[in-house]
Design a protein around this nucleic acid. Structure first.
Lengths: 208, 208
DNA sequence: CGCCCGTGGTGACTATGGTCACCAGTTTAA
DNA sequence: TTAAACTGGTGACCATAGTCACCACGGGCG
């Protein structure tokens, strides 16, 4: 049970009927930064919607990771949705990257609302569309682009979701999220700096 | 307008109400092998369902391609679906790989049926789920696996959708679908042959 | 018949990026 | 305050795969 005005504040675009449904059945949860919220193969009974903050979604293979996309405020996690509805294990990992406020919705209820509120159905299809496109973009980058441009695009996207041109990132972190190694990142960032695309200072990496 | 018994034959699992709707509004179309049915950025008004045959879906960048997945009988093309519903340009290409029998459904009607028949909605979510997983698998392979295993997995998948252990493929074709070059394929197939995983003969490549 | 073309095969070279080893500066914690 | 841990920087080396050049074989066709 959540305060209706809160749902209205964070999700103004979904319509009153859905807002009321979410308020009645949803549960609020504040999650600290860097907390795992979805592990591979996990059983999912609540589908999260992000109200505030940022969630990072990635895949993993042994010690290597690969960033897939971010879940931003007013978005939900389609993989949780699938895992919830179909009762299938998730193939991906999700971690809060900032302190995050979640609205947890019982997957049973969501299943019902989907039938009941065409608008919600549409929201999910939209979200799928977005994720699908992002995955294809990532795929294209992986096979068609060199590391330089992959890293630069990564920095631009990071800058967008964080709303800042100065990114306080460790070379190690970047390496992990792109599935490569630290030395390589150091080298490529040096190169991007020489090309005048970024500047590295003590406070972080600045996009130019 | 399509014969109801035909729809029942090819799509026995979707229920009578949907079968009737499909028969009333759908159009049958036979497409020869190797015909483009979806080009990047195209406007889509009819959503195809595959009744017989096979459709290959891939992405392209300059002269390079990359196979994404196959659409098999009784499946639809989610990207067409999105392009149709959202009126957005497609990011991908689709080509018949075998002579293919399609049932074309007006995207307007599908939009309506989705609200009306929960079962259809479910079918599309299932399909999304499948494609989504396939894309993530492809991504994992691209970043975490060596070419050897990518090619071997490609051959296994090809063998599955074609229901044969002997694949009449040119090295050139494989190279194109995996976004690499012919010489590399020749080399790797030699290696796989030495490892006893495949056999290359005049009639094609045999999986062992 | 001889030519062309598509196919596979191969060696040599290159580029990209991953790995290893090590260093120096800075921050953190005992 | 001193040691440990973490950070970026770098040179050397290696592995993978992409590129280039060329060759041989086997149709198919003029």
């Amino acid at each position: 049970m959540v305060d209706l005005s809160l749902v209205k504040k964070y999700l103004p675009h979904i319509g009153l009927d859905l807002q009321e449904a979410f308020a009645t059945e949803g549960v609020l949860k504040d999650v600290a930064a860097h907390t795992e919220i979805l592990q591979e193969g996990q059983h999912v009974t609540m589908i999260p919607m992000v109200l505030e903050g940022l969630i990072k979604v990635y895949t993993r293979n042994e010690e290597r990771e690969l960033l897939l996309y971010y879940i931003e405020p007013s978005e939900s996690c389609v993989m949780s949705f699938l895992a919830g509805i179909k009762n299938q294990p998730s193939k991906i990992f999700a971690v809060t990257e900032e302190p995050t406020k979640l609205l947890l919705l019982p997957s049973r209820s969501v299943e019902q609302w989907i039938q009941q509120f065409p608008r919600l159905n549409n929201l999910f299809y939209d979200l799928y569309n977005t994720r699908y496109s992002e995955l294809i973009d990532t795929l294209n980058q992986l096979i068609f682009q060199k590391l330089d441009s992959r890293i630069f695009d990564y920095l631009k996207e990071k800058s967008r979701v964080k709303s800042t041109r100065i990114l306080g990132l460790r070379h190690r972190e970047i390496a992990l999220e792109l599935g490569t190694s630290r030395e390589v990142i150091t080298r490529v960032l040096k190169k991007l700096e020489k090309e005048g695309k970024i500047r590295q200072a003590d406070n972080g990496i600045e996009l130019l």
